[in-house]
C-alpha cells in the first residue's frame, strides 16, 4: 500500500510539472505573438540598424524553435533575464510587486473566512433563522454583483462619508481596507455556503446524536464534534480560493491602483516586457498548481479513508 501511495504521489507530481510546462509554453507563444518589443521600446530616434542590433543581442532574430528551447532552458535554471522596461533583473521587479499581492491576497482571504465561517455555522445551526435567510440572499446577490463594481461603490461611499480610508494606492496601513473587502466578499459567499452545507451534513450524523445523548453541552457538540469534522470541506475550499484569489486580485488591483503582481502583469504584457511577463505568469501558475497539490495531499492527512481508497 505504501508503494501505491508513492506511485500516486509521483504521478501527481509529474502531472503538475506537465501543467506548468504547458502554461509556460502557451505564455511563450502568446507573448511572441504579442509583438516585437525592441521596435516598441526603442527610442524614437533609433536607426533601423540599431534596432536590428538590439534584436540580434536579445536573440529575437533566431528561429522560433531555438528561442523556445533557450527559453525552456532558462526557466529550468530560473533565469528570466533583464526586464526590457526597467533594465533590472525580471525576478527583482516581480519580487517587489509580489509582496503587495501577498498582503492583499492574505487580507482578502482573512475577510472571506472571517465572514464566511461564522455565518455558515450560525446559518446551519439556526437553519431557517434570520441569519440563514439573510446570508443566503446575500450569497445569491454575491453571484450577481461584479467585484469591480462593488469596489467602485465602496470608493464612492468612502469618498463621500469616511475620510480616513484612502480610496487607492498603497500608502498607509488603511489603504488595504477597501481592496481586501472587495477581494474577500465574493469568496466569503462561497465559504459561507460551503460551511453551512458541511455543518448540516455533519449535524445529521449518528455520532452527533450520540454526543448529545451522553450529555455533552451543545457547545461541546458543535465545536468539538461537528465543526472539526466539517472542516475537511472548508480546507478544500481554502485551497481553491488561495489559487483563485490571484485572478480576483488582477481586477481589484486595477480598481484600487494597488501596486501588485496583477497590475504588473497587465502593464508588462501591454509593454511587451517578455521577461517580466514570463517570470510572473510562471510564478502564478506554479502557485496554483502547487496549491492544488497541497490540497490533494492534505486530504489524505485529514481523512485517512481517502488514502486507503475507501471513498
Amino acid at each position: 500500500m505504501r508503494s501505491e501511495l508513492g506511485a500516486t504521489a509521483v504521478g501527481r507530481l509529474l502531472r503538475s510539472i506537465a501543467v506548468v510546462f504547458g502554461v509556460v509554453s502557451i505564455v511563450f507563444f502568446l507573448s511572441r505573438g504579442a509583438g516585437d518589443p525592441v521596435s516598441r521600446l526603442a527610442p524614437i530616434d533609433a536607426t533601423q540598424q540599431e534596432i536590428e542590433e538590439a534584436k540580434e543581442r536579445y536573440g529575437l532574430n533566431d528561429p522560433m524553435i531555438e528561442q523556445y528551447g533557450r527559453f525552456l532552458w532558462d526557466i529550468v535554471r530560473l533565469e528570466f533575464g533583464q526586464s526590457f522596461r526597467a533594465t533590472r533583473p525580471a525576478t527583482e521587479v516581480v519580487g517587489e510587486r509580489l509582496v503587495a499581492t501577498i498582503q492583499l491576497g492574505a487580507a482578502g482571504l482573512v475577510v472571506a473566512f472571517a465572514i464566511g465561517i461564522p455565518l455558515g455555522i450560525v446559518a446551519a445551526v439556526r437553519r431557517g433563522g434570520v441569519t440563514d435567510i439573510l446570508s443566503r440572499i446575500g450569497a445569491l446577490f454575491g453571484q450577481a454583483v461584479p467585484n469591480f463594481w462593488l469596489g467602485l461603490m465602496l470608493i464612492l461611499f468612502v469618498a463621500l462619508y469616511i475620510d480616513w480610508i484612502p480610496t487607492g494606492g498603497r500608502t498607509t496601513p488603511q489603504s488595504i481596507i477597501l481592496p481586501a473587502i472587495t477581494l474577500g466578499s465574493f469568496p466569503a459567499a462561497a465559504v459561507m455556503r460551503f460551511t453551512r452545507s458541511a455543518m448540516l451534513d455533519t449535524l445529521q450524523q449518528d455520532y452527533i446524536r450520540t454526543a448529545r445523548a451522553k450529555g455533552l453541552t451543545e457547545r461541546a457538540v458543535l465545536f468539538k464534534h461537528a465543526l472539526r469534522n466539517s472542516m475537511l470541506a472548508v480546507v478544500t475550499l481554502l485551497g481553491l480560493q488561495v489559487g483563485n484569489i490571484l485572478s480576483g486580485a488582477i481586477i481589484v488591483e486595477t480598481v484600487f491602483a494597488w501596486p501588485g503582481l496583477g497590475q504588473l502583469i497587465i502593464q508588462s504584457i501591454v509593454a511587451t516586457d517578455y521577461p517580466v511577463v514570463q517570470a510572473s505568469v510562471l510564478l502564478t501558475s506554479v502557485w496554483i498548481v502547487f496549491i492544488n497539490l497541497v490540497v490533494d495531499v492534505s486530504y489524505t492527512f485529514i481523512d485517512p479513508r481517502i488514502r486507503t481508497g475507501a471513498i
Binding site: G22, V23, G33, S247, V270, I288
Partner: peptide
C-alpha cells in the same frame, strides 16, 4: 482541464489584447 485551471483567463485576455 488542469492547464485551464492553472491559467487565469484574464491573462489570456490581456495577451489577446496585445496581439
Amino acid at each position: 482541464v488542469d492547464l485551464q485551471l492553472a491559467m487565469p483567463a484574464i491573462l489570456i485576455a490581456v495577451f489577446l489584447r496585445a496581439i
